[in-house]
Design a protein around this nucleic acid. Sequence first.
DNA 1: TTGTATGCGTTATCAG
DNA 2: CTGATAACGCATACAA
Lengths: 356, 356
Amino acid sequence: MNPPVTMRQIAERAEVSIGTVSHVINDTAKVREKLRQRVLDAIRSLGYQPSQLARGLRRNQTNIVVMIIPDITNPFFPAVVRGVEDVAYKHSFRLVLCNTDNDAHKESFYLNEMRSYRPAGWLVIPATDSQMATQLKPSAVSGAPVVCIDRQPPGWKGDVVLVANEAGAHSAAQHLLRMGHRQLAVITGPLHLTNAVERLKGFKRALAEAKVPIEPEYIQEARFNRQSGYQAATRLLRMLPRPTAIFACNDLMAMGVLLAAREMGLHCPEELSIVGFDDLDFAEFTAPALTSVHQPGYQLGATAARLLLERMNSGRQSPKKIVLPSELKIRHSVASLSPAHSPSRPKQHEEAVEIR
Amino acid sequence: MNPPVTMRQIAERAEVSIGTVSHVINDTAKVREKLRQRVLDAIRSLGYQPSQLARGLRRNQTNIVVMIIPDITNPFFPAVVRGVEDVAYKHSFRLVLCNTDNDAHKESFYLNEMRSYRPAGWLVIPATDSQMATQLKPSAVSGAPVVCIDRQPPGWKGDVVLVANEAGAHSAAQHLLRMGHRQLAVITGPLHLTNAVERLKGFKRALAEAKVPIEPEYIQEARFNRQSGYQAATRLLRMLPRPTAIFACNDLMAMGVLLAAREMGLHCPEELSIVGFDDLDFAEFTAPALTSVHQPGYQLGATAARLLLERMNSGRQSPKKIVLPSELKIRHSVASLSPAHSPSRPKQHEEAVEIR
DNA sequence: TTGTATGCGTTATCAG
DNA sequence: CTGATAACGCATACAA
């Protein structure tokens, strides 16, 4: 309503020049204590807030961090966003959030458009078909640092923070093997995602190490959602011999498996063991509670934000690749086929390591 | 890296004045078609993006919409945010997201600080102890419209978009009554929230209308999370006579009830019927699938955003209060005590109505 | 219809 | 140490 108070008014009130006000605000020159106090008082009593617009224009840099994600509605992402927001907030950065719907066009649109706010940095969970690395010139983000989260877009040479997909899937398969299962099936995500590929790789490696063969038909590709998981499970459960265990490469698909099994009158875990990936909140509410590979979503976001801050302070250095450990959460969706075996303990995979 | 291109460069390239460039960009004056094309070409070929900072400073208004919410990690909120983002995006507004953790101080901090970006509007899901209405002067947001979502802070006279809490709870109770239950218990949220109060009110009204009395001990207050729901359920299920049905005022608490029942060896729904509120995604994954009152989260956000846009275009008018209908989703967590009865159909409560 | 000039609120440079 | 003053990039009132 009434126009915001400006530096000029502070200057008048404190009976100093506008330059002095700026100096006490930014601590950019020594100001006599007496004047300093007058300025501070004026600021307080008038409720002055520096205009981020004017400041950003002048400095060619704001305290905005742009975060670009596929879809906040995907239950895995909120924790990531929260992790980012918390560390950003602590360092006085504000978050603008953009949903790409996994559309590469929308992604590059945002990348282009938000430049004009001169953000201090970028955090992006790339769209599945992201062109970030190839299509976009580095100048497109006008020098502000960028760190990718959760997925590494093809050709991307910059900073990236991931979770141990391969190791997580490996431990899931290993768990199933230890419980005596030999007829293992897997429902993967879309195999053009590095995510999905790595999980499948980890799964296969565990089987190879145990010298357990796998039928090609036991590997079903789905789309990381419940519907496609349900369909894949239905196909799988009709096969002979029927798999005794299914590893679903995310929890949503694991739900589909659970539903399919239920509909076919198959009891979980007695007649079918299931392991998921993600460990979403609801994993412990399902019946039976779902054994799943936990992804540290909050940590993912927080770590990425910290890396970004690091980049903002000390300029460009050689890119980092940080891999966060995943962890198998054992609950009740896996049964032992050899009753002598006791369940193995949860295992921690890979400490956070920095490659390069 | 290389400095962003400015209007001046466009002007030079197109051999016109800087004012003309501005005019074609904003369509603020008739420009000879020939020149217009030259300008447009220059813009395209140089990849020009107007500086939102400079523009905002000049216009004293940006295309930013600030959204303030308690916690994006609460599974009810992502859909709301998404609804907001979608309609905002369609109208070229960008969303900056702030989490208050239900802390009134953080809320007013954000309200104060983000002003200096001159946002076009504000969308806020108030903190539980929000002081928005009382403590904050209207001038604090410098004239940009504000609409509250999901909760009405005490004393708030402005626009607000809500869901039909009272009616939703009423229908939940009604359903239980129709199924023959007479020993009804309720687990409410914190009763300083209008939300929680309204749900309790709706529940009680249904009972009163059916002339079914309720013991005071059957009304347990909890904190809208699973833990407290579990504890309340444990207390309830030890009482004699034991309630045959529990209405939990949100799904998280309903999960707690489910767990408590399971631990006490009580089968749901045969020995205990449960109804939740929210209809979170996982409600259909639980065993048994949870009957719950659906809240239209996405619609809530989208509606609020549309109302905000309306306010931005045509100035201040008398405040609106929009109430969105909730809907009982009947699944499998409620059993009939009188086998003759067949389940009632899902019911729609209150068309979206505008009060005042 | 087009060009010129001013100011939005800051920061930063440069005298004093 | 402090005070003028020139940008920052754009929109707009006004002149041509």
